[in-house]
Design a protein around this nucleic acid. Structure first.
Lengths: 119, 119
DNA sequence: TTGTTTTTGCAACCCGGTTGCATTGTGTAT
DNA sequence: ATACACAATGCAACCGGGTTGCAAAAACAA
């Protein structure tokens, strides 16, 4: 089952949500897929993306992906097809915070219309 | 009731979620507050912030806030106290998208520990 | 006062995420 | 092969935020 999920994620160019993965595997239970994604995430096989769509999306980590807070890339969320693309070549900017604030993580999500929904 | 909600939001320096507002008004129903926030948002009195905490936060629009996609500011989300601050002086960066992608909106959320939770 | 519109409260639903627990499956040592 | 230990799965249920339908209450106007 985990192999199937990993294969599915590997052939994607967009990040998938739990529900989307669920739809592709009618036979599997949601909790199984949920736990699969969690274990993948713990072992740094995939990383999660919060694109503000209300659903957490998952994508496989690239070779260059250290999953470190300092080197995160931006994501693009299409408001039409709801797909989330990794903008691996768009780094998150440096942010100067007020005094006393520390940074753990920066989330940069661009929302718009993707090339497929553009036409 | 709407006046009370507006007063509450005006005296905040952080964005509040529906649940948080609910806690401050035990007497009011959640759906009432929900609809209040929606009408405020429709009339551009407040704007919503998605800080990735799973709850939509709301803050009053400043004079300078046109609620235009092009002039949005970043937000800071404290992972300890869960408060969301408006970083009004931190603009969202320009992002170069792949060909065929259009931008509606850019969401920049910084997660970390705020000055109050620091010590 | 009567009638109309707005606002509110209640209840219920939806949906994603999450967990407990029993069942099934896999692997290992005897 | 058998027995045991552990991991993976399926099922059911729960939680919490968001959302809506509908009827009661309040505000407003004629």
């Amino acid at each position: 089952m985990r192999e199937l999920v990993l294969d599915l994620l590997l052939e994607q160019n967009v990040a998938l949500s739990l529900s989307e993965i669920e739809d592709k595997f009618d036979q599997a239970d949601r909790s199984t897929l949920y736990r699969t994604l969690k274990t993948f995430e713990e072992n740094k096989v995939i990383h999660s993306v919060d694109d503000g769509s209300g659903m957490i999306k998952y994508a496989v980590c690239k070779d260059t992906c250290s999953c470190n807070p300092s080197e995160l890339h931006a994501h693009f969320h299409c408001v039409k097809c709801k797909k989330t693309y990794c903008l691996t070549d768009v780094p998150v900017p440096e942010v100067n915070l007020p005094h006393g604030f520390s940074i753990d993580y920066v989330n940069l999500v661009v929302k718009g219309v993707c090339v497929n929904c553009r036409k």
